[in-house]
Design a binder for these strands. Sequence first.
DNA 1: TCTGGATGTTCAT
DNA 2: TGAACCTCCAGAG
Length: 266
Amino acid sequence: MPEGHTVHRTANQFNQLFGGQPITVISPQGRFAEGAKLVSGHKLVAAEAIGKQMFLRFDNDLTIRIHLGIYGKWGYLKLDGLEAEDPVGQVRARFSNAKAAADLRGPTVCEVISADEVRLVEQRLGPDPLNPNRANAEAQRFIDRVMRSRTPIGLQLMNQDVIAGIGNVYRAELLFRAGLNPHTPGNLLTREQLQGIWDDSVALLKVGVATGFMITRDELFKKRPKKADRNFVYKREGLACRECGVNIVIELMAARKLYWCPGCQK
DNA sequence: TCTGGATGTTCAT
DNA sequence: TGAACCTCCAGAG
């Protein structure tokens, strides 16, 4: 489920499994064979997530940048000294030590880049609500950026240069929780409204990191709700709004499905 | 068993 | 704006 929370969970898992240790990197599928050779056997200094991208920094100043895109998935194997079985299906990259292995399938990006190239990517990405550093400055950066543009807030929340880590599910749910019509131009919103969206994104993403699920209904945060119960509007087109009873609508916004409630989001 | 859809991004037109 | 990328899975039959 590649929105920002998933990538932060993966980075945490990588630091636990492989952090500070030499790591074997292979490409069973072959498409990452050259990159794997550059870093395999080197120590993983740290795994870091920014928005939907993960950076694996090695002790030879090279970094693997991974973006799952829409298809990408991770699978984990516990080894405890046993040999890993041959991968099933198209495994772009396998990361392993004696204790564990992580298989990467179908990513949009899996490449080795230099420290300078890492900085270029970091500069382009917008603030990440899960970035623990400079939390207040990051919020202001988000607010200023949104207010500069007439682009609808529903589009801006999907732009990784504006806010890194939000995808289609959180976009729909954040706007519902804020009571905002997705078509509202960014420059017509107030600082208070945008601060509210930012704070809510921090809270929802933290729930996502903790649970692994995109739960957006407060009363279900500490439970394990079924998929159909987790959200207010996402994938609920034609059903009655949980708050006002008006039917949830679906429309295409920049070729992505947008779900919202015309009753609650005036 | 088959088909369509999916939480995303980039590039060409 | 639409196609391409590329893999898995839920739902249909």
